[in-house]
Design a protein around this nucleic acid. Structure first.
Length: 936
RNA sequence: GGGCGGUUAGCUCAGCUGGUUAGAGCGCCUGCCUUACAAGCAGGAGGUCGCAGGUUCGAGUCCUGCACUGCCCA
């Protein structure tokens, strides 16, 4: 690795190379640990992206966070397994292939089911790796050797196993119910897949003549076309207005069908006319009312939302045409009595946006309550910790109001339901294709044509991806997984389902003690039935993951949700090409503060590209000195201790860093403080704090101060140049390790260069993460440095105010009554003179308050000896302002200290701090007053 | 309709269990190509913390109400 790096950092020149290297060297492949392996375990499942997917900012945020956490664990000596895979995404994929077929002028029915599925597999083969290819560019440290696809044979077998077991346990049933139906996708969809949207619409009032009277009964509806399927009109029993009509019938207009007036809770007296039409086949509430009153059910629409033969003369019309026609007919015949503007809550298909039609159809359902009960218990008992905690509440509220889950989809692409229908009516649910009917012996069996909801199979992944239903060693070691990181948009779709299914199938009567940290249960061929109560330990180890971290949504810079239709979608790959992966990752990490969405702002990324460039140039500076001083990689290697083999804290502090000066003590102290802060921020998922801490340290302390301070010691003539340079390298190397989880590319690049291509590990990703050594934290050094920095900044301020020519070296006079401070300044005279551009630093014996060109602090006065006359008026103004501010603060402080309550009630350190501050302010104010007097 | 967030500098955001003088990045202004870095360095301006009450010795932080705004569920 050459040390002559280009002056400007070019991420494109190195990132692809490292991404490829990490994958090629299988650095993140995790072999199944042997029995007796005592290393701690960290396991995490990648939320499988859809095979049809393209990487978006949400993925990148998600994966950046997972990668930071995974790399951090790996570097701390954990067996870190990050398991990747893709989801077959039933509807989405089917739609994709149908679109492709459409360009050839065909549809899926032209091909037939078998050919169509072949075609989907072909599509998958050709395009299915697009998203995982993109993932590699992000540097995601996943174990590619374990990559799965939810339609893989072993996963499909597990799906069938789960289905059959649930069926055998009586938790899966089949029935005709009203479901959300997408007429475009021609399938049922779950409640969750319906997105509600409020749109301006109309509420029409229709009057139905009451047979045998001259009266009418008026009902209101937003979907008048469904009146063709009405089988009753309902009124409330206690509604006085309709008491005389109980038991009578109305004539359904247009259809000339007699339908009864029934009493039902469906009709609420305070709402509208108090009477409602009842259409059991096309409305879930009406369906329930129909069951209560034993009403006939008349379907008037087919699966395409086209009116069918039951709709009389409207048959063959699309639902909206029919609506128009029905209204027109009603109007003509005098039945339409009102039309009001009304806000309609439209349900739309999450996939295609088509307005969903409630439709009566035969579907498969999971009786969810028993599963939900456990899923509630594990979260209430904190066996699964959800961060941020507000999502815990949201989860529990949803789980407590859960409805049975419709798991069948009328699609072709997906896991086909393992149920076979016999001509005798028998349904056989079986793991393998049955040869004959268990009831009548017929061999004419037809497999159910439906497939399972995609979330059914992805809900099983935490255990099926580890080999379930076999009792594998992987399950034993890696289940429960340690953590799930995902977006709130799939909290119910996926997170909730995984918890329900995991806690159901992975609960055990007893748990073998494995002695592994972070590992859990062993797979068992048979789970317990719901009747048997579980021990807490069983429950605790049945969970799919111990922790859930829910991250924010990535929006555009204007806080708008990114969407294709708005055209504001930021392509992460483009951002990466512009600024580099590291900078993009850093942006997402630094903006990941809990609770708020991320308004992705490219100007931030630009800033972090500058940060990468800063690191790059600091490295160039280091290498320049390494080459000059004649240090080589092995010298540094020698100074680093062996990494402790198993589990421990390998590098504590910075080993081999030889402290000789104040700045050495100071930077070592700062490094350890930052390492501590980062190691505290990450387990709390404070990616922003971790990222900012490293940024501030590297740029604001390491580069701005430490490097500047050691420059004189690095020059050739300096006796300790080699030690100084070795310190620089050791510090740099440790900082790279600290930063690596966030910026893996640039850090690995420089790290390899430090070791001259002979690194102690194949990658920095395998090196040890810095741990704070409390003994290296030196508060005294930090205070002393702060004084020196204060001094330098004061002089720089004065120079700027007096508009001293940048290059001119100016003499400075200092008054420091405290001997310690005086000697501190004396000892660091060289550094102060150089960094403040001072020539001749002299001490004064008396206060400088009466003199011009002075900066006052509580600890010292510094005066620039410079001829230029100052602008008296401006100086007076400035001093006045400063004085006012200080006086205000002093008054405030004195008032507080004078308050007995404060002194009595506030904690000691707070009072002491305030006293010290008040003292400082008194000194400062006295100085400022004197100065103001002088200025006249 | 029910629930949950947000409102802090021109912009995007931090500010943890209440405790000194409310911070950062970007942008803006001034001066510097000081041999690691102009994607840089040094300095600077800019905030009645959405509004109104309350609790407290002390409120950006806790409570109540209001306003605006976003999201989820129905």
């Amino acid at each position: 690795m050459p040390h002559d790096l280009p002056k400007a950092y070019e991420p494109a020149a190195i990132e692809a190379r490292w991404a490829e290297y990490w994958v090629k060297e299988k650095l993140f492949a995790v072999a199944t640990p042997r029995e007796g392996d005592t290393r701690p375990v960290f396991s995490i499942l990648l939320p499988p992206p859809n095979v049809t997917g393209r990487l978006h900012m949400g993925h990148m945020l998600n994966q950046t966070q997972m990668d930071i956490i995974t790399r951090w664990h790996r570097m701390r000596g954990f067996i870190a397994l990050w398991l990747p895979g893709t989801d077959h995404a039933g509807i989405a994929t089917q739609m994709m292939v149908e679109k492709q077929l459409a360009t050839e002028g065909k549809n899926r029915r032209d091909l037939g089911r078998e050919k169509f599925i072949e075609r989907v597999w072909e599509w998958k083969k050709q395009y299915g790796s697009a998203i995982t290819d993109q993932m590699r560019r992000l540097g995601a440290s996943v174990d590619w050797s374990r990559e799965y696809f939810t339609m893989d044979e072993n996963l499909s077998r597990a799906v069938r196993e789960v289905f059959v077991r649930l069926y055998e346990q009586g938790l899966i049933y089949r029935g005709k119910y009203i479901v959300n139906w997408c007429p475009r996708c021609e399938t049922a969809i779950s409640d969750l897949e319906v997105k509600h949207e409020e749109v301006p619409g109309k509420l029409w009032e229709i009057r139905y003549p009451v047979i045998g009277t001259n009266e009418f009964i008026t009902v209101a509806t937003t979907r008048p076309e469904t009146m063709l399927g009405d089988t009753a009109v309902a009124v409330n029993e206690r509604d006085e207005r309709y008491k005389h009509l109980h038991g009578k019938k109305v004539m359904l207009p247009l259809m000339n069908r007699e339908i009864p007036i029934i009493t039902d809770e469906l009709a609420q007296p305070e709402f509208g006319t108090g009477a409602v039409k009842v259409t059991p086949a096309h409305d879930p509430n009406d369906f329930e009312a129909g069951l209560r009153a034993n009403l006939p059910v008349i379907e008037v629409m087919d699966e395409h939302a086209v009116m069918n033969e039951n709709a009389g003369r409207f048959a063959g019309m699309d639902r909206y045409t029919a609506r128009k026609e029905v209204l027109e007919n009603l109007r003509e015949q005098g039945f339409l009595v009102g039309e009001k503007d009304y806000t309609v809550a439209l349900g739309k298909c999450d996939r295609c946006g088509t307005v969903v039609e409630p439709r009566l159809s035969m579907q498969w359902f999971i009786k969810i309550q028993p599963l939900a009960d456990r899923a509630i218990e594990v979260v209430e008992k904190d066996y699964i910790r959800i961060t941020p905690p507000n999502y815990r509440t949201i989860y529990l509220t949803w789980m407590k109001n859960i409805h049975d889950w419709c798991i069948s989809r009328q699609l072709w692409w997906g896991h086909r339901i393992p149920a076979w229908h016999c001509s005798c009516g028998e349904i056989i649910v079986s793991r393998e294709t049955p040869k004959s009917c268990s009831k009548c012996g017929s061999s004419e069996l037809k497999q159910d044509s439906d497939v399972l909801d995609t979330w059914f199979s992805s809900g099983l992944l935490p255990f099926t991806a580890l080999g379930w239903p076999e009792a594998t060693r992987d399950l034993e070691v890696f289940y429960p997984t340690s953590l799930l990181i995902t977006g709130f948009d799939i909290l119910f779709f996926w997170v909730a389902r995984m918890i329900m299914l995991g806690c159901w199938f992975m609960a055990l009567p007893e748990k073998p003690t494995t002695g592994h940290v972070g590992t859990g249960a062993t797979a068992r061929p048979a789970e317990r039935s719901s009747a048997v109560s579980l021990s807490d330990a069983d429950l605790r180890n049945s969970v799919p993951y111990r922790e859930v971290y829910i991250h924010a949504l990535v929006r555009d810079a204007e806080r708008q949700k990114m969407s294709k239709t708005k055209g504001n979608v930021l392509d992460p790959i483009q951002v990466i090409e512009k600024y580099g992966t590291d900078a993009t990752r850093f942006t997402l990490a630094a903006m990941s503060s809990p609770g708020t969405d991320i308004a992705f702002n490219e100007s931030r990324t630009e800033g972090y590209r500058a940060f990468a460039n800063k690191i790059w140039n600091a490295a160039r500076f280091m290498f320049m000195n390494v080459d000059r001083v004649g240090l080589c990689g092995s010298d540094i290697l020698v100074r680093q201790p062996e990494r402790t083999a198993e589990g421990g804290c390998p590098y504590v502090g910075i080993a081999g860093f030889e402290v000789t000066t104040l700045e050495d003590r100071w930077i070592l102290s700062r490094f350890n403080s930052v390492a501590r802060a980062v190691n505290e921020a990450l387990p709390a998922y404070r990616f922003d704090e971790a990222a900012n801490a490293i940024y501030d340290f590297f740029w604001g302390e390491f580069c701005d101060w430490y490097i500047e301070l050691i420059k004189p010691r690095l020059v050739e003539s300096s006796a300790d140049a080699k030690t100084t340079c070795a310190n620089l390298v050791a510090l740099f190397e440790a900082s790279l390790r600290l930063l690596h989880p966030v910026m893996p590319f640039i850090t690995d690049e420089i790290w390899h260069a430090i070791y001259d291509g002979k690194p102690p590990q194949k990658s920095l990703a395998l090196a040890a993460y810095p741990q704070a050594d409390e003994r290296q934290i030196d508060k005294a050094a930090e205070t002393q440095m702060a004084i020196l920095q204060d001094f330098i900044v004061s002089v720089r301020n004065l120079r700027a105010e007096l508009k001293v020519e940048t290059k001119a070296k100016i003499p400075v006079e200092v008054f420091a009554p405290d001997g310690d401070i005086r000697s501190l300044i004396e000892q660091n005279r060289g550094a102060l003179e150089r960094l403040a551009n001072v020539e001749g630093l002299q001490f004064a014996n008396a206060s400088l308050a009466k003199l011009p060109n002075v900066r006052h602090t509580a600890r010292f006065d510094a005066r620039l000896i410079y001829e230029q006359k100052i602008d008296v008026a401006a100086e007076r103004e400035k001093t006045k302002k400063e004085l006012e501010k200080a006086e205000k603060e002093l008054a405030n402080g004195e008032r507080q200290l004078g308050n007995e309550q404060f002194v009595a009630k506030a904690p000691g350190p707070v009072v002491d701090k305030l006293r010290a501050r008040v003292e400082e302010l008194r000194i400062l104010i006295a100085k400022l007053r004197k100065k103001l007097d002088e200025l006249g």
